[in-house]
């Protein structure tokens, strides 16, 4: 298998799907001539032309609305909102419009768009450029939400998202774009809603996703040295979530920790925790621990940013607490 970056993997997925289906097109701020704020769409404008790789005005609500309108009449738009922070400007279009259309029409219409965006901290982007707002979309019926952590998952899931007939929020992470990993030469897709066990273990289940997975893995390897055998699970899709995989793991380990970069209160981990308590609580031998970003806006200064976003050390503390 070749080794490519997360960015290149996403680009391959876009390119392959555009070649495969002429209804697929891209629209967003600076995605064309420039190739995207994080260079994901680089070269696609040259290859597919202005009609299929559209630079838009700074009009987030209109970008999503355009995606919905075009999707309604048969196209497969991949729209880009440059930062997940700016989905706030398109919330009506995402939440009240696109997410509801299929249901409200009694199944008569469909909205097969993918909204690509990126979130997360790590670059001192501060409070308006560093958030992880994915749980908002997980909360909304009618949306699928994907947050891949590796080049392999990014490519396979983006392809599936483009082929999916529903609106899909596809959340990339700004600190993952240069991450390298193996990706097959041949065509493949990854089913939406299927998680994976990244590392097997028997003492505690650690669920994490997107960039936080890397911290989770560091924590797991550190704890291995202390004889704590951590099973790491990446659900990859946040909605629908692969709860079965998590339940099976919890049944085996009897302990659950969730590590996430979004805010602690009502984050993705809150849902996982609630679900596990409802369904398999009898298997648990300790408290479910959520290790998440602290409930403050993401500050600019590096040192403060580090304090707010959970690192491997905090995850290890969380695991020890769950095992106490």
């Amino acid at each position: 298998m070749k080794e490519i970056t997360y960015r290149e993997a996403l680009r391959e997925a876009l390119r392959e799907e555009m070649l495969r289906d002429e209804n697929v097109f891209i629209a967003g701020e600076d995605v064309g001539i420039y190739g995207g704020a994080y260079a994901v769409t680089k070269g696609l404008y040259e290859e597919f032309g202005e009609e299929r790789v559209k630079d838009t005005p700074i009009s987030e609500a209109a970008i999503v609305g355009l995606g919905t309108g075009a999707a309604l009449i048969g196209l497969r738009p991949v729209i880009e909102i440059m930062y997940i922070d700016f989905t706030t400007l398109a919330m009506d279009q995402i939440v009240n419009q696109a997410a509801k259309f299929h249901y409200m029409s009694g199944g008569n219409v469909k909205v097969p768009w993918v909204l690509r965006t990126q979130g997360g901290a790590g670059r001192s982007g501060a409070a308006q450029h560093s958030q992880s707002l994915e749980s908002w979309f997980v909360h909304i019926p009618g949306l699928k939400v994907i947050a891949p952590s590796t080049p392999y998952d990014a490519k396979g899931l983006l392809k599936s998202a483009i082929r999916d007939d529903n609106p899909v929020i596809f959340v990339e992470h700004k600190m993952l774009y240069n991450k390298k990993g193996p990706v097959p030469e041949e065509e493949y897709t990854i089913p939406i809603g299927k998680g994976i066990i990244v590392k097997e273990g028997k003492d505690v289940t650690l669920v994490s996703y997107s960039k936080e997975i890397d911290e989770a893995m560091k924590a797991a390897y550190e704890l291995q040295k202390e004889g704590i055998d951590v099973e790491v699970i990446d659900p990859r899709t946040l909605k629908p979530m692969d709860f079965e995989l998590i339940f099976e793991s919890v049944k085996k380990t009897s302990h659950l920790v969730i590590a996430e970069e979004d805010h602690y209160t009502l984050g993705v981990g809150a849902e996982i925790s609630a679900k596990v308590s409802e369904e398999v609580i009898e298997y648990l031998d300790g408290p479910i621990i959520r290790v998440a970003a602290l409930d403050v806006p993401i500050p600019a200064a590096r040192k403060l940013e580090k304090r707010v976003i959970p690192d491997a050390t905090r995850i290890m503390d969380g695991i020890r607490r769950s095992l106490e």
Partner: peptide
């Protein structure tokens, strides 16, 4: 990003604001 900055390092370039100066905010959102 220092503690002696206008926003104690929490704002950074894009979010400098200061009411005493009548600056109701630089803004990271266009």
């Amino acid at each position: 990003g220092k503690e002696t900055g206008y926003c104690k390092g929490k704002g950074g370039s894009m979010h400098i604001m200061n009411f005493d100066l009548g600056v109701l905010g630089a803004n990271g959102v266009v």
